[in-house]
Design a protein around this nucleic acid. Structure first.
Lengths: 169, 169
DNA sequence: CCCGCCATGTAACACGTTACATGATTTT
DNA sequence: AAAATCATGTAACGTGTTACATGGCGGG
């Protein structure tokens, strides 16, 4: 459901096409969501039907006509109302955590390998986030990236400590 | 799909009923998943059909007969194979992050309120995790709780820093 | 006497991903 | 000559949540 507000939020900045929204999400919001066309287009249709957005069709030569969506007053109201509500609980789905919990079934060497691989992966992610931050051009983007960076560092610390306890045992 | 391995993993410790699994998940794994009966029972049926588990039905007076599931060799093999594979990417869905990103549409006071509320919430969560940790009785459980604790602390640090930059602006 | 625990399950709904379909234009 | 970009969309599939249905037993 929160893709609804993702769209309304982006349209509240400026009118956009579905295609624009997709690009914007990939560039700036990949930490938050991965919304695909299969989610975005149907949701735009729905928002239109419900009056939260309006659309202006711009014909193009030899291409599907561009549909520029613009948020309506009703849409703005809905967005505002949603923003004021406290955020619903996070849903973290960390397959890695599950594996770790189930690792009784694994011998110590394999467990060690699992943890080490994880650390490599997170460290790679940390580097790529740092690179992204250099390119960031809005405060909002920096906030989100910082968030991801803080979490990465925390996970690395935790992994180090975990490795230490595994080393002893 | 990973509920499949959740079930296999828990059954690899000892035979259990669907009801037992649900309880276990609520008690020890709420950080990782919230699997409901509507997920668990159908998955057990499927695992049975596919030969990854076996079942023993124990009739009871005036209650649905208890179905105790036990993992099969095929199931164990599948679990091992899965555990050895690197974990797939995390999917973090943080509604709060989205709100923050879209907060251009919000005036500074409301933004402030959003951030403050979040901090209260996370601090409450931190306390409840600490309490849970005292009750923990397996290393695995401590690992998972520690993970959640590290993330909580990181988020609080990030929020503090965010509050500071908001205060200045 | 009521509530929570035990214990199974299904059905409707909501959500999201992936792959497919189309096809010119611009960049490498 | 190939690949990426622009630009729309649908359909099948997979997964998960919620609410419903059933009903005795034990403790406060």
């Amino acid at each position: 459901m929160s893709h609804r507000y993702l769209i309304l939020g982006l349209l509240s900045e400026r009118p956009m096409t579905g295609y624009d929204i997709k690009k914007r999400v990939q560039e700036n919001l990949s930490t938050v969501t991965n919304a695909s066309y299969g989610t975005l287009y149907p949701m735009l249709h729905r928002l239109l039907k419900e009056g939260a957005v309006k659309v202006k069709e711009i014909p193009q030569r030899s291409r599907p006509s561009k549909k520029v969506y613009r948020i309506s007053q009703a849409g703005l109201d809905e967005l505002q109302a949603w923003l004021k509500q406290p955020a619903s609980d996070d849903q973290i789905k960390r397959e890695f955590l599950l594996k770790l919990y189930l690792a009784k079934a694994l011998d110590p060497q394999q467990l060690r390998a699992l943890v080490d691989d994880r650390r490599d992966e997170i460290e790679a992610r940390l580097r790529s986030l740092r690179a992204e931050k250099k390119e960031a051009d809005s405060p909002q983007q920096v906030w989100v990236l910082d968030y991801a960076l803080y979490l990465c560092r925390a996970e690395i610390d935790w992994l180090k400590q975990l490795e230490a306890t595994l080393g002893v045992a």
